[in-house]
């Protein structure tokens, strides 16, 4: 584990961190990872026996999901949400140009 790993990770997470901040965060980060390393001892089986399926998720059939129809008497919150945006231009939310 190196500071560079932390830097790349911060970039992926869109967390802007200065050299100083990275150096300060590094010990706590390393501490947690070395704590995580204890899980190696628990490794009862190797490989993804369940094919990547989440162990904690339930399996359901179609009736469980939402039918394709607009819910009746739905309140229109669009104006409220546009007001909550930091910057808007009439019906658009605006940000500084990407390009």
């Amino acid at each position: 584990m190196e500071i560079r790993d932390l830097q790349e990770t911060a970039a992926l997470a869109h967390l802007l961190m200065s050299e100083q901040e990275l150096r300060e965060a590094f010990p706590a980060f390393e501490e947690m990872l070395s704590f995580f390393a204890v899980m190696q001892a628990a490794d009862a089986q190797s490989g993804d026996a369940d094919g990547g399926m989440a162990a904690s998720s339930r399996v359901v059939n179609a009736g469980y999901f939402r039918p394709d129809a607009a819910p009746p008497a739905r309140e229109d919150l669009s104006e409220d949400m546009l007001t909550k945006a930091g910057e808007r231009d009439e019906r658009f939310i605006t940000i500084p140009n990407v390009l």
């Binding site: 992926l12 990547g52 399926m53 989440a54 904690s56 998720s57 339930r58 399996v59 359901v60 059939n61 179609a62 469980y64 999901f65």
Partner: peptide, 20 residues
């Protein structure tokens, strides 16, 4: 890009039955 895929915890797993 590293998309860091992991199973969506907010949605259950769908097992389509014969009727579906």
């Amino acid at each position: 890009q590293d998309y860091r895929y992991f199973p969506e915890p907010d949605l259950p797993i769908f097992a389509p039955d014969a009727a579906f």
